[in-house]
């Protein structure tokens, strides 16, 4: 009797795991299909660039405050921690290099993407989810206007354009934060700070690679946000869950992609 109950319970658990796994696979396929449809339907964005410009304002410009303030604090913390470690080895002048490389290679693209997912990604998901729940997307369909071309594609391209610009601004403000801590506060030589940074940061291997990462993160975060909104059940609970999934999925995908991209960029 007990053995039979255990067997039933084990089968049920396996079935649940299997069903969740297949659902994830299905969602990945649906997301990839939507990505393809958005790219194919992007002609409207080229014909009417104002649609994209408007979305760049909402996703990019409106995210500036959180990105810049975070960058400033991250830069200052890097300055403090870096100096604390480097002075042990007598190379505190290399603080500029440490701050710049950390930001340009890793922290800039990654933290910008995480903040973007939290600020702009959730807004995109909630907006599209609510448009679906209030039948605005259906109304558009009935007016013979494709919601993919008119609503989703402009938001997608806006995210892809905004992310590298935000990441670049994050790096600039982060370096400024590191400078303010290292030079005026701690007393590291300003010439050493800037010259070592200039000598060590490579245009192609550091800055271009960082920008490439941020473009990839932009594509990933925006498509996840759009898909979650478009796929959300048209209820308050459905939109709320979709918004949460946007942040969780985007964060995990960004960190996973960061590892994969870094492993290709660094020759060991």
């Amino acid at each position: 009797m007990i053995r039979s109950k255990l067997l039933t319970s084990a089968i049920r658990t396996l079935r649940n795991i299997g069903s969740r796994f297949t659902e994830r696979i299905w969602r990945m396929g649906a997301g990839a299909r939507l990505f393809g449809l958005i790219v194919v339907s992007s002609g409207e964005c080229l014909r009417r660039p104002r649609l994209v410009v408007r979305e760049v304002y909402f996703t990019g410009v409106m995210s500036l405050i959180i990105i810049l303030v975070s960058a400033f604090f991250v830069g200052m913390v890097l300055g403090l921690q870096g100096y604390n470690t480097l002075q042990t080895y007598g190379s505190s002048e290399a603080i500029g290099v440490l701050v710049a490389l950390s930001l340009v290679r890793e922290l800039g693209p990654v933290i910008t993407a995480l903040l973007f997912a939290g600020r702009a990604g959730t807004a995109i998901t909630a907006e599209i989810g609510l448009m679906k729940a209030t039948e605005q997307l259906s109304a558009m369909e009935m007016m013979a206007v494709s919601p993919i071309a008119r609503v989703l594609a402009p938001r997608f391209w806006a995210g892809v354009i905004a992310m590298p610009i935000l990441a670049a601004l994050f790096c600039m403000v982060g370096v400024l934060g590191g400078y303010l801590v290292a030079v005026p506060l701690i007393g590291v030589d300003a010439g050493a700070f800037w010259s070592q940074m200039q000598a060590s940061v490579d245009w192609q291997h550091d800055i271009l690679n960082g920008m490439f990462k941020s473009v990839v993160f932009g594509v990933a975060c925006t498509i996840i946000a759009i898909f979650e909104g478009y796929d959300a059940p048209p209820t308050a609970e459905g939109v709320s869950r979709a918004t949460t999934r946007t942040v969780v999925t985007s964060s995990l995908v960004v960190l996973g992609l960061d590892f994969i991209l870094t492993s290709f960029m660094i020759n060991i």
């Binding site: 209030t134 039948e135 605005q136 109304a139 009935m142």
Partner: peptide, 11 residues
Amino acid sequence: GMLFQQGALFT
């Protein structure tokens, strides 16, 4: 032309 139950105006 279609009139939706909740209006479905673009907010």
